[in-house]
């Protein structure tokens, strides 16, 4: 009887509140500590150029991670984003090399990303395959497609300069376009998630699908939106990536999946613990970016960085799992 009404013993809810408090700020403290540590430890970290550089470096990761955040809000995980980055990053250069105008090539790449998202959600929402598995399989298929359409080679030569400017140009000679696009996307996504009914419904579906349904929310549609946006944002990131590299790479986006998930998990430890939020994800990406940048500056090997990153993910997920009822499958 009472057990089903969800009344928690008083003691438990109290300790949860304390844990929540520590959690909310500990991640922020780590971010600040890393920042101060690198700023004091090396001369080259705390300079205007390097700080702008960090923003530039995290821009593509952040966009992927914000996309993942939409999926996470509806309790859907998208493991195909890395390969969608690759797909979009190949498709746009391929089309342009073949003579398709720039805007059309970009639109086609974005549409391909959206299409992947819709196929994923057809599997998840229509057929009922858990998103973790459906998107894992989709990722494998996309990896193959990426090699197929590129012939396993990088696509370059004949990409218009205007396109490359998207990844390499700077506003007023200071702020790189990718960083600007990222900031706009973060701000817009934050607004949508925190200030509109769309965001509220998406979180409702992830929070308690049955309660959302009985409140008249289109649960199935919002699960589709979550997965579609996650893929769509990955495609945006892929376009920036190829513009920045000046080429389309068949395995271009693979690292963004793990780093993107890490950013979301780190973000879930702050603000609203256990919930993926746009700002949390942005801080998570910033933390990863500062760490990568700083460790590079102090000359740490990339494989050590990979180990450090793995450890941070484990810690973040452990913190979230212990204090909330996080369920990903």
């Amino acid at each position: 009887m009472t057990m089903t009404t969800g009344t928690l013993p008083v003691r438990e809810s109290h300790s949860m509140r304390l844990g929540t408090l520590i959690q909310k700020y500990s991640t922020l403290a780590v971010l600040v500590a890393l920042f101060l540590g690198f700023a004091i430890g090396t001369d080259r970290f705390f300079t205007g150029t390097n700080l702008v550089n960090i923003l530039q470096q995290i821009s593509m990761l952040t966009i992927v991670a914000v996309g993942l955040t939409f999926g996470f809000a509806a309790k859907e995980m998208d493991l195909s984003v890395g390969y969608v980055v690759g797909l979009a990053g190949l498709l746009a250069p391929l089309l342009m090399v073949a003579g398709v105008p720039i805007p059309l090539a970009i639109l086609a790449a974005l549409a391909a990303g959206l299409a992947v998202g819709l196929i994923n959600s057809a599997l998840v929402v229509g057929v009922g395959v858990p998103s973790l598995i459906a998107t894992l399989a989709a990722g494998s298929i996309l990896w193959g497609i990426n090699f197929m359409i590129s012939g396993g080679r990088a696509i370059y030569g004949g990409i218009p300069a205007e396109y490359l400017a998207v990844g390499q140009g700077k506003v007023g000679g200071i702020l790189p376009y990718p960083a600007l696009i990222m900031l706009v996307i973060v701000a817009a996504s934050w607004f949508v998630m925190e200030r509109t009914t769309f965001g509220r419904y998406l979180y409702a579906v992830g929070g308690n699908a049955r309660a959302a349904e009985l409140s008249g929310i289109k649960v199935r549609s919002y699960r589709v939106y979550g997965l579609a946006l996650s893929s769509f944002f990955a495609a945006i990131s892929g376009i920036i990536l190829s513009a920045r590299l000046g080429s389309g790479q068949p395995n271009g986006g693979e690292t963004y999946l793990l780093d993107g998930l890490a950013a979301v998990f780190i973000g879930m430890t702050m603000l609203r613990p256990g919930t993926a939020t746009v700002m949390g994800t942005f801080f998570g990406a910033l933390l990863i970016g500062i760490m990568n940048n700083g460790l590079n500056l102090v000359g740490m090997d990339t494989y050590i960085q990979s180990i450090v990153k793995g450890v941070i993910i484990v810690i973040a997920v452990s913190v979230v799992s212990r204090t909330t009822k996080l369920k990903l499958l």
Binding site: T196, T197, R200, A211, L214, S215
Partner: peptide
Amino acid sequence: IPDHRMINAMIGDWTVRENMSMAGIQEIS
């Protein structure tokens, strides 16, 4: 107004405000 309210009606880690506005929020948007 369903039975087993925490399963069928409420989102446990949401606030009173968010739970209360869940069905009518479009009206004030």
